[in-house]
Every structure is written in C-alpha cells, then in structure tokens.
Simulated scan of single mutants.
Amino acid sequence: MTLNLTVSPDFAPDHIAGWYFFNTWLQRQLGNAVHLELYDSFEEQRQDLRAEKVDLIYANPYDASMLVRELGFEAIARPLAQPDETIIACREDAEFESVEDLQPGTRVATTSDPDVHTMGMIMLEPADLDSSNISIAQRSNYVLVAKSLLKREADIGFFLKAGYQDLSALIQNQMKVLVTSQISVVHHTLLVGPGMREQIPLLQERLLAMHEDDKGRSVLESLGIEQWESMDRERTEFMIDLIDTLIP
C-alpha cells in the first residue's frame, strides 16, 4: 500500500526539490512506496486530511491541534532549534522604525498561514491597531508578501521568520524588520497518522539519526534543517494548548 506524505503549504518554494529528496529517502527507510502530495492552499490540504488521504505530514503549529486532537495523528519529530517565529517587516525606506510608529489605515500584506497571521495581529497591539482600523491583503506566499511591500501595495508584511530568511538577499536588502516574536516553543512538526502507528519506532529512529550519514545530511540540507529532534506527547500538548490560546 502506498503511503501519502504532504507538507504544510507555507514551506519555502526553494525547498520543493528537498521534499522530493526526503520522499525518496523515506521510501528507502520504510521499504514502502510513498507518494508526496503538495498543496497550493491550506484549505485544500485540510479537506484531504479530514478525508483520511494523508499518512504523514510536516505540519504548521495551527494544524497540529486538529491533527492530534481530532484526527488521531501523533507528533514524532521537529527540526532542532527552529522555532516558528513571526516577523513584521516593511520597506527599507519606510518612515517608521518600530510597530509603535504605525498608524490607523496601515496596509498589511499577509498569507493564509493562520498562526503567523494571528501572531502578527497580536504584535500590532502596541500601536492600537486591529482588523477594524487597518486594511489586510492576503497573498499566497511570502515572496508575494515581499513583492507587495516593494511595489508599495502594502506598508507592512507578516512573515514566518524562516520564510523571510529564505528570501533572496536582493529582496531582504530592500526591507527592514520592525519586530520579531520570541515565543520559542511553537514550531512545525512531523506527524504520523493512525494507519502508520506501528512504524513510528522505526521511523523515529531513522529520522533522529538522519544527520549522521552523508546522504541523510544532504537531504536535510536541501530542506534547510540541521537535524531532527524527538517530539513527545507532553511537548506536543503544550504547543497545542498555546496555539489554542492564541487562536480561539
């Protein structure tokens, strides 16, 4: 039986090849066919998750709650020292230097990534800004958020920190960071569905040792990951509780 792997749609486009490399590596480790399905939208992916079409997913923190508590997935690993932080950035030549300088009417470019968007909105609170006194334009990825800033279609943009850092140096040099979140315990996670539960010990063992050989290390580098570290139930539940507090 072919297993189905997917990735949260907020991953950097530069890592598309890396996920195909990871898919090939995964097949060899499990001795089983694995199909990688990439989605353009969160909603389309969630529909297939609820339809039980996914066995393994590299998920964003927001979806981890649904996956674990509603669909019976189990978190097994996360990238080492790569928490999901949110950045609010603007053009380098913008007149404001901090969030407190922003005024009502500020134009915000964001994505459909719910945890990043929500954290960005929370970080606007010191300027007394909320959805009632700003305009929000949704873009499909962080490259387009950055383009909205550079084309002066938006004043600020919300970015996943990793997504911002994956932008080219040319683009980053035309922007500046106003503020970065410092939560440190929210992160993307690799989760396994109920149908793969028996394979968790083997998969977790291979993932945690992946950085120890040249082939595994090369795949990790293509994903922008140094190495995996294990996730247990307690860590997972703590992260989910925090996300549920931030996003009602």
Rank of each mutant, 00 (worst) to 15 (best):
V7W: 15
V143Y: 11
F73N: 00
Q82M: 12
V68C: 08
W228P: 02
A162I: 07
L3E: 09
T180F: 08
E221N: 15
R206C: 11
Q199V: 12
R50K: 14
G18N: 11
Q29W: 12
P114I: 00
S132M: 01
I200V: 14
V7I: 15
G195N: 15
V186S: 01
Y39A: 03
R50L: 12
L144P: 07
G157C: 07
S168E: 09
Q103Y: 10
A77I: 00
H187D: 08
N4S: 15
V185N: 09
F21W: 15
W19R: 11
I225N: 04
K176H: 07
N173H: 11
E97Q: 15
R50I: 08
T2C: 14
M121L: 09
L150T: 00
N173F: 06
E221D: 15
V99C: 08
S8D: 13
T118W: 03
D113C: 06
T6C: 12
M121D: 03
S132G: 09
Q47S: 10
K53C: 11
P194F: 12
G157D: 02
L208Y: 13
V34A: 04
V116F: 03
V68A: 10
H15F: 14
F21T: 10
R28K: 10
N23P: 12
V7N: 11
A127V: 02
E43C: 06
R78I: 07
E95C: 12
E212K: 12
I76E: 05
I122C: 14
L191C: 03
I171Y: 02
A109R: 02
V179M: 03
I171S: 05
V179W: 03
H35P: 01
T106H: 02
V7Q: 12
L129H: 08
L149K: 00
K176D: 00
A77R: 09
T236N: 04
I171N: 05
M119W: 01
D10L: 09
L202P: 13
M123F: 01
K151V: 01
T86W: 01
D14G: 14
A162Y: 08
E153P: 06
I122F: 15
L246M: 06
S218P: 06
E44D: 13
N133M: 06
V186F: 02
Q29V: 10
V99D: 04
I171W: 04
S135L: 00
M175P: 10
A109C: 00
T86R: 01
H211E: 07
L67V: 05
E153G: 06
L3G: 06
I247G: 02
T24D: 14
G120T: 05
L26E: 09
L246A: 05
T110N: 05
V116Q: 05
A154H: 06
S135I: 02
D93F: 04
L102D: 04
A209K: 15
Q47N: 11
R107D: 09
M119G: 04
L102T: 00
E97K: 14
F21L: 13
A33S: 02
D48N: 11
E70S: 14
V143H: 09
T118K: 13
I156H: 03
P61W: 08
D55L: 12
I240D: 00
A127F: 07
Q172D: 02
A154N: 01
I171E: 01
S112M: 11
E97Y: 14
S184I: 00
L102I: 01
I76K: 05
Q45W: 13
V186L: 06
R217G: 15
V192H: 09
R91M: 03
A154M: 07
